[in-house]
Amino acid sequence: MKPRDLAIYVFLATAWGLSFLVVLKVVAAFGWVAAVSIRAFVASATLFLIAKTIRRRLDFSAGWRPFFVVGATTVAGQLLGLSYATPLIGTAMAAIIVASIPLFSMVISHVWGLERIRPSGLFGLALGVVGIMLLVGFPAVPVTSEFILGCAAALAACFFAAFGSNYASHRLKQAGSWEVTTGSFLFGGLIAMPFLLVVPVPGVPGTIDILYLLIAGCVMSATTYLLYFTLVGSIGATRAISVEFVVTVVAVLVGAVILKEPLSPVQFIGAAVIILGCTMVLGLFPWQRTKVADVPLPHQDGIP
């Protein structure tokens, strides 16, 4: 890996790992719906303004429907689920569940006929399911209705992320990463906005809260996705997606050290099993012959 690629890799792992902490701050100030809707608008506007500044032409000739579907799943579905779940189950647990996105992605890709699951991939899927059962079934905190709802929301978010990524790779093959990211964030913000009638902003956000929101939209959404696609083009999607595992490690450390979130020994085992399963699914072991198609996956990283 070239020094530039390594620097991008480390930056993405750090930024996305810390994003779980930023989400907690933003959700507390804006509510879990506004935290997604406004952030999505900020991210879309940031990319649009940057494109105008550098005179990059954005081509949305694919039509609005594909961008709508990707926005509904990878932005609205994924980020609403994670924004709702993270305060309930903690950043560490949410991050570990997010690491299971490749498992959902491979199943959907196989059902749609986009990719055939090899034996090592099936074994990886089985390990991932076992890991999720260990993670959710043996928590260090009491199993309350809120905990169960949080886990369900996080898993639903992972499914939406995987669904949207596969849909984008199939229907938006000709669209560039700038267009896919800008369009999906715009529609994701529009789709999430009506839910403000049910979950309004709890109060008047302070200056620091607005700063956190801008960081989430400008840095942890817009900027990181552009860098991610740069990394995909340089080292390939399979190796680039592996940054998810480092993101999980960073987020778990943030949760354990800064937020003092408890995780049971069985949950640590579950996390290791999930990461092992995803590694096999992605074909990252040298002895595996299964190769994941190197296609841009707009929001498969599952970052809140």
Score class of each variant (00 low, 15 high):
residue 1 M to K: 04
residue 1 M to I: 12
residue 5 D to G: 15
residue 6 L to I: 15
residue 6 L to F: 15
residue 8 I to T: 14
residue 16 W to E: 10
residue 17 G to M: 04
residue 20 F to K: 06
residue 22 V to G: 07
residue 31 G to V: 09
residue 32 W to N: 13
residue 32 W to I: 08
residue 32 W to M: 12
residue 34 A to Q: 12
residue 37 S to Q: 03
residue 40 A to W: 05
residue 41 F to A: 07
residue 48 F to A: 14
residue 49 L to P: 06
residue 49 L to A: 14
residue 51 A to Q: 12
residue 54 I to A: 09
residue 54 I to T: 13
residue 57 R to S: 15
residue 74 T to G: 15
residue 75 V to E: 01
residue 80 L to R: 09
residue 80 L to D: 05
residue 83 S to T: 07
residue 83 S to M: 08
residue 85 A to W: 03
residue 95 A to C: 01
residue 96 I to F: 06
residue 97 I to D: 01
residue 99 A to N: 03
residue 104 F to T: 01
residue 106 M to A: 14
residue 107 V to Q: 01
residue 117 I to L: 15
residue 120 S to C: 03
residue 122 L to K: 00
residue 123 F to V: 07
residue 127 L to C: 14
residue 127 L to R: 02
residue 130 V to H: 00
residue 135 L to G: 02
residue 137 G to V: 08
residue 141 V to Q: 11
residue 144 T to P: 11
residue 149 L to T: 00
residue 154 A to L: 02
residue 157 A to Y: 08
residue 157 A to R: 10
residue 161 A to L: 04
residue 164 G to V: 07
residue 166 N to K: 04
residue 174 Q to F: 01
residue 178 W to G: 04
residue 179 E to Y: 06
residue 182 T to H: 10
residue 182 T to L: 12
residue 184 S to N: 07
residue 185 F to C: 09
residue 189 G to N: 08
residue 199 V to R: 04
residue 205 P to E: 05
residue 207 T to E: 10
residue 211 L to W: 01
residue 212 Y to C: 13
residue 213 L to R: 04
residue 218 C to K: 02
residue 229 F to E: 09
residue 229 F to H: 15
residue 232 V to M: 08
residue 241 I to L: 15
residue 242 S to I: 06
residue 248 T to G: 06
residue 251 A to N: 09
residue 253 L to A: 15
residue 255 G to F: 10
residue 260 K to C: 11
residue 263 L to Q: 00
residue 272 A to D: 03
residue 280 M to I: 07
residue 285 F to A: 14
residue 286 P to D: 10
residue 291 K to L: 10
residue 292 V to R: 10
residue 297 L to W: 03
residue 303 I to W: 11
